[in-house]
Design a protein around this nucleic acid. Structure first.
Lengths: 187, 187
DNA sequence: AAAAACATGTAAGCTGTTACATGATTGG
DNA sequence: CCAATCATGTAACAGCTTACATGTTTTT
């Protein structure tokens, strides 16, 4: 049995995009180029192999479409297996270190929740996010006390990091409010 | 003539660290592991080849040291060529898109300026940083007006991005103050 | 005597990048 | 008919990761 494959970040992004709307590789490239979803290259050498990989592993499937009379396009859509993988990615619990190292990925996850996750699930994500951010904030504050007076460069770097986490705690608070209101209106 | 090699981000970080203090590969690994400078792997397969590459291209050199009686260590130091490359990296002008895609690198540059750059140079960097951040902020504000009412996910993502840039503008302001005071005290 | 820490490396593999290559269709 | 756009791909390479491999010195 071939050992299991897990998509890369780019793979999940493609999964997320195709889950919004089935598309051709070309369409995906255009969107990544114009509405930068992350800092991914939109070059063919980047996108096409990634799509092939996803297809080979059964996360997406494709059908060839002759739209009017243009050259036939290969339109990809997410399979059940792909949807399952996407949902699992979106639901993954956060680590405190993600706040420092994987912010971009967390934000991508948040954005793709729009098409797959319930408001309840989004709220769970945001609550987890805020909690982990608070933990990280206290770690950083402890560091400030320890290093006390170091170089201005180091001190300012730490200050920036702290300001960053604080901002994210506030942001999460606002976001939670937004989604709680939406939940209230549902019932 | 071999086409010229430019260090990768990891390469510059190693250059910066060795510029602070000559070290062995092992010492570098330990520091990257314990005081995370970025999200680099501290594994030997990551660090040693990177050092070899820098050495091969004349950015660093090494001497074998028998410290007391431990196994001989290979201690690396930055050459003139390496220092020149490091300074060039630190001085590189910023692009607006760096604020979105390369924040981590910019902050690494700021930190390594401590050992190489004058306060004047640091101030130039910060001024450039703040200016580019303001440009980016106005771009984001324009986007807000355009998309107006979209999904809460997208709207909140954009809000977060804006809060982030604002925070960085303020941070740069503080940092500029700090370094201007230092400059004043110099004279 | 064994375990932990010191110290350095190699090999295989995956991703993603740039550059190259191809061909169809549409607009001027 | 020529250029631009549509559309898909391959090849070569760089960089990093994990896992493997090896041996020494110090501590227990």
């Amino acid at each position: 049995m071939a050992r299991q494959y897990t998509p890369t970040l780019l793979g999940y992004v493609l999964l997320g995009m195709l889950n919004q709307l089935p598309r051709s590789g070309y369409d995906v490239r255009i969107e990544i180029e114009t509405a930068p979803v992350g800092q991914f290259s939109s070059s063919p050498g980047s996108i096409y192999p990634a799509l092939q990989q996803l297809k080979k592993n059964g996360f997406i499937d494709s059908e060839v479409v002759h739209r009017s009379r243009l050259k036939p396009r290969e339109v990809f859509h997410v399979t059940e297996k792909g949807k399952k993988a996407l949902r699992a990615w979106l639901r993954k619990r956060l680590a405190v270190s993600d706040l420092r190292d994987n912010l971009a990925e967390l934000m991508l996850r948040f954005r793709f929740m729009e098409d797959t996750a319930s408001n309840e699930e989004t709220l769970r994500f945001l609550a987890d996010f805020r909690r982990k951010a608070k933990t990280y904030a206290s770690i950083l504050n402890a560091q400030t006390r320890v290093q006390a007076e170091s170089s201005p460069h180091l001190a300012l770097s730490l200050q920036r990091e702290i300001a960053m986490v604080k901002m994210h705690i506030e942001w999460a608070g606002q976001a939670i409010e937004t989604f709680e209101e939406m939940k209230a209106q549902e019932s």
